[in-house]
Design a protein around this nucleic acid. Structure first.
Length: 667
DNA sequence: TTGTCATGCT
């Protein structure tokens, strides 16, 4: 060990330490002028420094021309440093520490915690190890603050074994040591061990405080252990820790991750103090389980209470807008981002592209895309998927080529987009080539989704036999999506016999789901075999097959209205139904199936027509695939009422205008 | 002087 405080002179120490330092950070870094530590710029100058008349004095002070015995000065400086947001903090603190040693000042137990914290924040493990050796040499390894900070450093650097060793060998460990170990295990990816440590701690009759509980709760959330979570909640109540915002947030997150969103929400409602973490946890908790309307509702409440959203909130909101087709709110978020100078690159930009694409504004998505200076695989993939959903296969492929040219590596989702684009554009050969090359050329192994895309592609093109052969040759078991997509193709090409075979497979896989029955009954209908269709519907009723209720959304003046088939709960239900009946009257010629008259998309369109200005395009988001009947009716509505109607169904966009649809009957 | 909560894009 080079550094020996008792025997070496200050200058020898200096040299040895310099040697150690340079092995950790490059000499170039050390030669660079010391960046001005930001604590010198702030108002919170350490008292001993604020006496300095100006910054230059302070700098020269730091440069080492001052009083060589002021240990307190250096410790204070180091402590201020560890709170600063200086980017070169590790180097800066090392240089200050080095100067201190150079002056022959012997660090004490107050010096190390802040230094260790800086290194921990930057995951500077090697630098931390050097400090550890200094600590041992100085005999400061019996100080609880020093040891706790060392433990923490090793934990965040992934050296949980060293953390545990320190903990085990340290007799004076306190509540902070226990909490540090718990957090360490959790952060290192061992939530189970974190909980075990907590149990052991309680068995030793130590009393957990809010910080400990928050730490265990986060491990508990990761484990999804509701039972433990509830007993921790009880502990919180008994020990009156519920006013602690950290504890509250940890409880909200725990309930949300354990699948009890309503308990989380109830707790959130009762929190005496909330911060941005509380709001984000709750909003993103709703997003996580697909409760987008509730996420947006909560976001509105957050706005009303004057809480400023951050980037995380906004991506959650954009995500919800994308799912619901809530274009107005999405645009508001876009404006908010611009107004507040929030960087539109990166995740937020990607979320914006996705939102515009999913809300039917593919042009706007492209605009945001083009304006982004940094584009990554998410950016390209969002845009490619957007084009695919809009049936713009060539645009998608062109973008894919751009992406390769620029050197952005496609991943498995990109290929879903590329194959879907080929499928929707009828580019079978091109698509098959991509599929064959994706693993060899791009290192992306095809997964079931990709096989599904190929089946879909072949099926749409009417290559039903090829599709069937392809399924049989797949190295993975076909799932319900694959069979469903082939059955859909049978429907398009009125292939009753093949359809019947596939339906059997599908019913076996998902006996209680409607998909197979609905497709088959449509297939019979399209082949004029109405009796068979009726038989299928009867079987469905008898087998109590569960139906996913059709649901359509339309946003009017920033509010998303939801309609379900036959639903009369809307305040304007009377006018809406009058309008729907008007459709039926005026479109009699189409001989539409009565069953479909009150389909959710018709209700949404009727509401849109009576509540928006004449030239406004209507944008509908539907959870299922549009049925043939409604597809025909909407085409006629677009002509009769002279409205552009954009419908996003489960699979793609339909832009209806002047009696035509952008999908060219191909969906 | 030390330890606590959460999170985003395809």
């Amino acid at each position: 060990m080079a550094f020996s405080p008792s025997s070496s002179s200050p200058s020898t120490q200096h040299l040895h330490f310099l040697h150690q330092l340079t092995s950790i950070i490059s000499t170039d870094e050390l030669k660079q002028p010391l960046p001005l530590p930001s604590f010198l710029k702030s108002n919170s100058l350490p008292r001993i420094l604020s006496i300095s008349a100006n910054l230059a004095d302070a700098q020269s002070f730091l440069a080492g021309v001052d009083n060589p015995t002021s240990l307190l000065t250096y410790s204070t400086v180091l402590r201020s440093l560890c709170r600063s947001s200086d980017k070169n903090l590790v180097v800066t603190s090392m240089v200050v520490y080095k100067e201190m040693l150079g002056k022959g000042i012997r660090p004490d137990n107050f010096t190390f915690p802040s230094l260790l914290k800086v290194f921990a924040n930057s995951r500077a493990l090697r630098a931390g190890e050097v400090l550890h050796s200094h600590i041992l040499k100085l005999g400061l390894d019996a100080d609880v603050y020093v040891i706790n900070n060392l433990m923490s450093l090793y934990a965040v650097c992934g050296e949980i074994g060293s953390t545990k060793k320190l903990f085990d060998r340290f007799p004076e460990r306190d509540l902070v040591s226990w909490t540090t170990l718990i957090t360490g295990y959790k952060k290192a990816g061992f939530p189970k061990e974190a909980v075990q440590v907590f149990v052991q701690m309680m068995n030793e009759n130590l009393r957990a405080d809010g910080m400990t509980i928050a730490a265990v709760l986060s491990a508990c959330a990761e484990l999804g252990d509701l039972q433990l979570g509830r007993s921790l909640h009880k502990y919180v109540d008994v020990h009156k820790l519920d006013s602690d915002v950290f504890v509250g947030n940890a409880l909200v997150d725990m309930y949300s991750k354990c699948g009890h969103i309503d308990s989380a929400y109830k707790l959130f409602g009762k929190m005496p103090v909330r911060n941005i973490v509380s709001w984000n946890s709750m909003i993103l908790g709703f997003v996580e389980i697909g409760e987008f309307s509730r996420a947006l509702q909560l976001f509105r409440q957050m706005q009303c209470e004057g809480v400023q959203p951050d980037g995380f909130t906004l991506t959650g909101v954009l995500n919800s807008c994308a799912s619901l087709g809530a274009l107005d709110l999405g645009r508001w978020v876009h404006a908010y981002i611009s107004r507040n100078g929030i960087r539109g690159d990166g995740i937020i930009g990607n979320a914006l592209v996705n939102m515009y694409a999913k809300c039917g504004r593919i042009d706007q998505a492209r605009k945001v895309f083009d304006e982004m200076s940094h584009k990554d695989v998410y950016t390209y993939t969002s845009m490619i998927l957007g084009f695919a959903m809009h049936g713009r296969g060539e645009d998608a492929l062109e973008l894919f080529a751009d992406m390769l040219r620029i050197g952005v590596k496609p991943n498995e989702v990109t290929f879903v987009g590329v194959l879907a684009a080929c499928s929707h554009a009828g580019l079978v050969d091109v698509g098959l080539r991509f599929f064959e090359n994706m693993s060899i050329e791009y290192g992306v192994t095809p997964q079931i989704e990709h096989y599904g895309c190929v089946v879909d592609m072949l099926g749409r093109a009417g290559l039903l036999e090829e599709a069937q052969e392809f399924i049989l040759s797949m190295p993975v078991e076909p799932d319900a999506f694959i069979w469903g997509s082939l059955l859909g193709a049978c429907k398009n090409y009125s292939e009753v016999a093949l359809g019947e075979t596939i339906m059997k497979q599908l019913v076996e896989l998902e006996p209680d789901k409607e998909g197979a029955y609905v497709l088959m009954s449509n297939l019979y209908a399209s082949s004029n075999r109405h009796d068979d269709g009726y038989r299928i519907r009867k079987t469905m009723r008898m087998n109590k097959v569960r139906k996913t209720p059709g649901c359509s959304l339309i946003e009017v003046e920033g509010i998303v209205h939801e309609f379900r088939k036959g639903d009369k709960s809307h305040p304007q239900a009377k006018q809406i139904y009058a309008m729907v009946d008007e459709f039926a009257d005026r479109l009699k010629m189409l001989l539409s199936d009565k069953e479909c008259h009150h389909h959710s998309e018709r209700l949404a369109i009727a509401f849109g027509l009576i509540s928006t200005k004449p030239n406004m395009p209507l944008r509908i988001t539907k959870n299922l695939r549009i049925c043939d009947d409604c597809h025909n009716v909407i085409k006629s509505i677009s002509e009769l009422y002279d409205r552009e109607i954009v419908v996003r169904d489960r699979y793609r966009f339909h832009h209806f205008k002047d009696g035509l649809c952008s999908c060219n009957e191909f969906w």
